[in-house]
Amino acid sequence: MDTFLWIVRVGAIILLIWGVAGTVVQGLSGQGPTGEAWRDLVVAGIAQGAMYGLIALGYSMVYGVLGFINFAHGEVFMSGGMVGFFVANYLWEVRLWETNFVLAILLVLLSSILTSTLVAVIVERIAYRPLRASPRLIPLITSIGISFFLQYTFAGLFGVAVKNYPPPPDSLRSRVSLLGLEIEGSKLLVIVVAVATMVGLYLFVEKTRTGRSIRAVAEDKEIAALMGIDVNRTIVATFAVGGAMAGVAGTLWALLFRGVSFITGFLPGIKAFTAAVLGGIGNLPGAMAGGVLLGLFEGVGPQLVLAGFGIPGVSQLKDVVAFTALVLVLIFKPTGLFGERLSAEDRA
């Protein structure tokens, strides 16, 4: 075994234990967050992580099929959230948001899914398909360009100011009792919707004909084509499904944070990519689990580990915690937590 890597691993474990022990000591002496506060941190981390997971599915699916990272996927997510805002705002003005919130949020969800799906498919058709035979670096760089193009197109169309969704009803803002835990309604809804979406996607990929085509194309495009699968259509379907997942995440974002702007997709996009790598790129359950874990690292990590060292303002370091967690996971398990799913070409 590489001695240096071994030292890093042992050092990381010692620091982790040291930080947690310091936090426990602080807690025992009456400092630090209360039990309720830890609960809030965990729930918020899972809710945010579930959203990362949904976005990460798009990264993972595209990587599985085309073998490149679509860095514009964060903007696909943003586009859904942005259009959803205008629908929500209209429904607020006609009072449907207040009188029938369930119907209103379903309409917002639908508009968000449609928009993100459409944007993802158009981007694939215009920007990626012509480059399919090019080296992978070319579409990768193109995706960064598309990301900026989408950001500033939305900035130009709708302005740069943050747009705030209407407030959710009181029932979502109050706490709900679940297994003895008092959880904020909106966060519980986000977690439930994310899990249901993930299960639906899993069944779609595993049980449907299109899902099987996606898996076949991900395995080997040429063999899949020889078996009669329309590769182009399957790739479009992959982008569409990834876009739809991002659209769901766009609406969940609105429930959690309410504000969207043209750069809303940038950081969640990077985090979702991190989540996909964390779980094992190309692996759909891995992407979802990676997202939830990343959310938890972000939410709980600063208080659990860094506060124990007596570092002031630990919340500002949550991104450091998240990306350090990624590095550590890759040091301990280079293929991600659930292992990569690569095509025959990539494996070779």
Binding site: Q31, G32, P33, T34, A37, D40, L41, A44, Q48, L256, F257, G259, I263, T264, L267, E298, G299, P302, Q303, A307, P312, G313, V314, S315, Q316, K318, D319
Partner: peptide
């Protein structure tokens, strides 16, 4: 508590929990 957020942060639960202590 005297703490900070990052520009661009959206999730404030962590910093608010730190403050709430």
């Amino acid at each position: 508590a005297f703490t900070a957020v990052n520009k661009g942060d959206t999730d404030m639960i962590s910093v608010l929990t730190e403050v709430a202590a």
